[in-house]
Design a protein around this nucleic acid. Structure first.
Lengths: 174, 174
DNA sequence: GCTCAGGTAGAGGGATCACTCTACACCGTC
DNA sequence: GACGGTGTAGAGTGATCCCTCTACCTGAGC
């Protein structure tokens, strides 16, 4: 059942987001997923696969949160986008990006590294699309990643700073 | 001996930077520190203390790398600063900030969280001082953190983007 | 009513890990 | 030459962890 898979992925994401990647044992993950150990291992044959399943689920939810029903006007879209990064931080991860956390927990894992790269690249690409800033993906990535990290220290002030940086980006374009 | 302590801290920093915080066992850390297990535990009575010792050592080295003999002229200082962030990434951490890694490995640890906050705050404060951008600490933090994270994907292009963002910051000021 | 896919519950193996403890070596000082 | 401080070497302990495996339950379809 895809239903079971979805339930497992959602539970795993929640567990890793709350407790990090090092702490939760597979039995903790089983509790979070709400299935038996056997079923958990059926869908994710190793703990590493559980991490990947959680990140995949996270990726979809993050894109949804950032880009669903974003305003059409480019300026409004950029402001809304950065606001949404702020609300994501406030409601979902008070401590940095889950993808960075996964890589940090296992720096030698090239597969994880690839997942992070693809995640970042897709976020930047869609951000550039949505804000009419094609070709400025790298700048957008710097701003969004910077906001994600600085948010822990400065909260809403970091969001406002990111907006100002984003606006200057548009002026440079003109 | 402070000498032994320094040798231990340097070894621990190198081990955690290379292999992350989850993987190295205390015996690995002992090998990296180049002392016996007993001596290691004498200076760092638990594995958590080993993490703190590594971060403290890292903090000093990072500040040194960024701010020692920085140009006096504000514009040149900012460019040099961001270049140095790039060289730090290239030579020391190809995968994100060690402080974030430590927090990510143990999100519930408030002590680690405090260390990260103080680290970021001091870096931002000294960056504002050195570049004549007093009062723009948060913007500088967003740019430097964004560069640190985006570097893994875009290397030198990320540095150039960060410089442009930094320059726009100065124009806003005028 | 039987089957069988897909689920639960949970004990156990084999390995690893953080940490402690004993026994011993070196070296400058009195 | 005795001694105390500082170091090494390494075995052992108790706990935890990832993963496997056995035994059983449930409910829809024929």
């Amino acid at each position: 059942m895809t239903d079971t898979m979805h339930k497992i992925a959602a539970g795993l994401e929640r567990a890793f987001a709350t407790h990090g990647f090092a702490e939760p044992s597979v039995e903790d993950l089983r509790d979070a997923a709400g299935v038996s150990l056997r079923t958990l291992y059926k869908y994710a044959p190793s703990r590493a696969d559980m991490v990947l399943a959680a990140l995949e689920h996270r990726h979809g939810r993050y894109l949804s949160h950032l880009f669903d029903e974003l305003p059409d006007a480019p300026e409004a879209a950029l402001d809304a986008l950065l606001d949404r990064v702020g609300t994501w931080m406030a409601t979902e991860t008070s401590h940095g990006c889950l993808f960075h956390g996964a890589v940090a927990a296992e720096p030698g894992n090239e597969r994880l590294r690839g997942v992070l790269s693809r995640h970042n690249a897709e976020v930047a690409r869609r951000a550039a699309d949505a804000t009419g800033l094609a070709g400025r993906e790298t700048e957008l990535l710097v701003i969004m990643e910077g906001l994600t990290q600085a948010w822990a220290l400065h909260r809403d002030a970091a969001v406002e700073c990111a907006k100002r940086l984003g606006m200057s980006l548009r002026k440079q374009d003109a």
